[in-house]
Design a protein around this nucleic acid. Structure first.
Lengths: 197, 197
DNA sequence: CGCGACGTTGATTTGCCTCAACGATTGTGG
DNA sequence: CCACAATCGTTGAGGCAAATCAACGTCGCG
């Protein structure tokens, strides 16, 4: 599994061999079965997870027990409860594996040292934080101005191919509609497409 | 106006006198008339604004021209287009003054040096970034699980007293309902309260 | 096979929007 | 000082988007 990390690091982060070794040494590899929990509510998120294979989801629970998906993280994405990770407070999110997944965990202290010592890790970290911010802002603006159909299309664009991999009710939860309504929406989209073609 | 900054800095940031002087020297004071623009669409946000008096708003425009409020910033709050500030890309948000306001502008380079040299400025900056993240996340979770009434109550709690200061349609835009509906909502809330008391 | 998880479909209800009309308040020029 | 417009909030009628509830179809799997 480590060779996958090596390949990823040299392809995407332009690291030297010694830097790759350094990163490899301070990372935890972890396999998650489908449905396995990575972070439970009220734990402290001491790590950032990098997804090599599979797909994670971060979600929160309602007062009445229903769950809402905040983020998906398929291969190549990073995921954590940002607030808990930054402030060390107990997490308001939970993270689990939608598919069987392989992930790398960067613990806070190890990541801190890597960022201090390796500029391209620092740049990667900053880019990741910025992306998290941008995504959150886009979700807010999307929910303020977009219809359910537009939000569904935005989801498709953000996570290409993911709609075919994960249960539809997870997507419904992500875009903020009921599973039944998403089903009707998709029916309408397909029907419209076949009519115009 | 600078003495207000001095008072604020010594009260909230626990700076020494020399540090206060250092901060004061690298800040821009600016008065904004009611309705004045601080940042227009597609500019680059080169600063973080700190609000001493009055109230700013950050908003974005829809395809059809309608505006949606993303943030308010009354006294004591910081505001910028975070993404544009971090990435130097053109802003997707605009910022203007809802009330006549006094603000301090921290330019990117000056702020960077202050953070590097003064630990408590750095801590303040980090706390501000974390708050921005937390607020965005709360807006997403709020829009996924809350009714319009719950979002209105959350607004009241987040910005105490602000509802009496700014036009009601701005609040409606912030919580994502039409002005008419917010009016009916408030009517209902008052009626319910008087019935139970 | 039968069971559970998931998706679909239809009937009904509800939350919120749109449109339109009407006060209340404020500011402004004659 | 008053007439007037402009701005903002309120109220009601009607409509649409999406939720809820219930029933049923389908698939994978023990």
């Amino acid at each position: 599994m480590l060779d996958l990390l090596h390949r990823y690091l040299s392809d995407h982060l332009l690291l030297t061999q010694s830097e790759i070794d350094r990163v490899s040494a301070s990372v935890q590899c972890r396999h998650l079965d489908k449905g396995a929990m990575l972070l439970s509510f009220c734990e402290s998120a001491t790590f950032v997870a990098f997804v090599l294979r599979g797909c994670l989801r971060a979600y929160f629970a309602d007062d009445d027990g229903s769950e809402h998906v905040l983020h998906f993280a398929p291969e190549g994405w990073c995921l954590t409860d940002t607030e808990s990770f930054l402030t060390r407070k107990p997490s308001s999110l939970a993270i689990d594996a939608i598919e069987a997944s392989d992930v790398f965990l960067f613990e806070r202290t190890a990541l801190h040292e890597l960022r201090r010592d390796i500029p391209s890790v620092s740049a990667f970290y900053n880019a990741t934080v910025e992306r998290a911010l941008r995504l959150l802002q886009q979700r807010v603006t999307g929910s303020l101005r977009k219809t359910a159909e537009q939000r569904y299309r935005a989801f498709i664009e953000l996570y290409p191919g993911l709609d075919a991999r994960i249960p539809q009710y997870q997507i419904a939860s992500y875009i903020g509609v009921s599973p039944e309504f998403l089903s009707k929406l998709r029916g309408r989209i397909v029907r419209d497409k076949s009519r115009t073609s």
